[in-house]
């Protein structure tokens, strides 16, 4: 080591400057590598288009539209669509005597934005079969909290005792399945999304083909029901595992609103 350097060493100022640079360099490296926390962002899963799925029972036999119980009384039918974590109600709606009633297509208003969309009418031999997302648009409660109150079985709502509605016992949101899932009472500001069904009169089979209305609760874009989203809620296709195969299984559950 040469004498002049070892005796004096670098001046304090120079050493401080090196120290500052090492600090800055360390901070930049650590901050730059924090970008690696993107690792925690899971890859998107889902499908790219709405699948056309045949509705089958748990044994894989197709559901016959003419044999579907009316008014979800005492059993309510639920099937996943378009992804596995997106349950939907399947209703054969009727009047108080249990006869199916024709459900016409209707224009539904979204209270949150005032935007509207066309909900499909009923299908099947009586035009009475409709399907809706079974996840409440308010805060995501599902069946059995969210369920259909058949004629004669009344829910307690902000507008008094009502039957023939879908009511959520979590926070009281109420929807009208006879009018495209439109909002009857809050706190929800968005209608229940509709599943568009097809009925094959030759075989009596039912198919789910797509969704209209707000994006299903919790999926990308569900809080922004713009007219474009309402007409084609592509967010439904993200955030869940795809359903394998060309069928989706309908399961039947005791409807607590009908037995209570």
């Amino acid at each position: 080591m040469s004498a002049d350097v070892s005796a004096a060493g670098p001046t304090m100022g120079r050493r401080d400057f090196l120290k500052a640079l090492v600090f800055i360099s360390g901070a930049v490296v650590v901050a730059g590598m924090l970008r690696g926390l993107d690792f925690l962002m899971p890859p998107e899963i889902g499908v790219t288009a709405f699948p056309r799925l045949l509705l089958v029972d748990e044994n894989g036999n197709p559901i016959k539209a003419s044999e579907l119980p009316v008014n979800a009384d005492p059993k309510i039918a639920i099937f996943p669509y378009p992804l596995n974590n997106e349950p939907s109600f399947l209703f054969n709606l009727g009047d108080s005597s249990g006869k199916p009633v024709k459900i016409p297509p209707t224009t539904v208003v979204v209270p949150q934005t005032g935007a509207t969309y066309e909900a499909p009418g009923g299908v099947g031999p009586y035009g009475s079969i409709v399907a809706f997302s079974a996840i409440c648009q308010h805060l995501g409660c599902q069946f059995p909290e969210l369920t259909f109150y058949p004629p004669g079985h009344k829910a307690i709502t902000a507008k008094g005792f009502l039957d023939r509605v879908i009511n959520c016992s979590c926070h009281g949101s109420t929807y009208d399945p006879y009018k495209g899932g439109a909002v009857v009472t809050g706190p929800t500001e968005r209608p229940l999304p509709s599943v568009v069904l097809e009925w094959d009169p030759n075989t009596d089979y039912l198919y789910a083909v797509k969704m209209v209305g707000p994006v299903i609760y919790g999926h990308p874009g569900y809080t922004t029901p713009t007219p474009k989203v309402l007409a084609n809620p592509l967010g439904d296709l993200q955030g869940g595992s795809p359903i394998k195969g060309k069928t989706t299984a309908v399961t039947f559950h005791t409807n607590p609103a009908a037995t209570g």
Binding site: L18, L21, V22, I24, S25, V28, V29, G32
Partner: peptide
Amino acid sequence: GYIAGIWAIIDI
């Protein structure tokens, strides 16, 4: 030290 510190910043 200067060179290495600046090199690290450039890499990042």
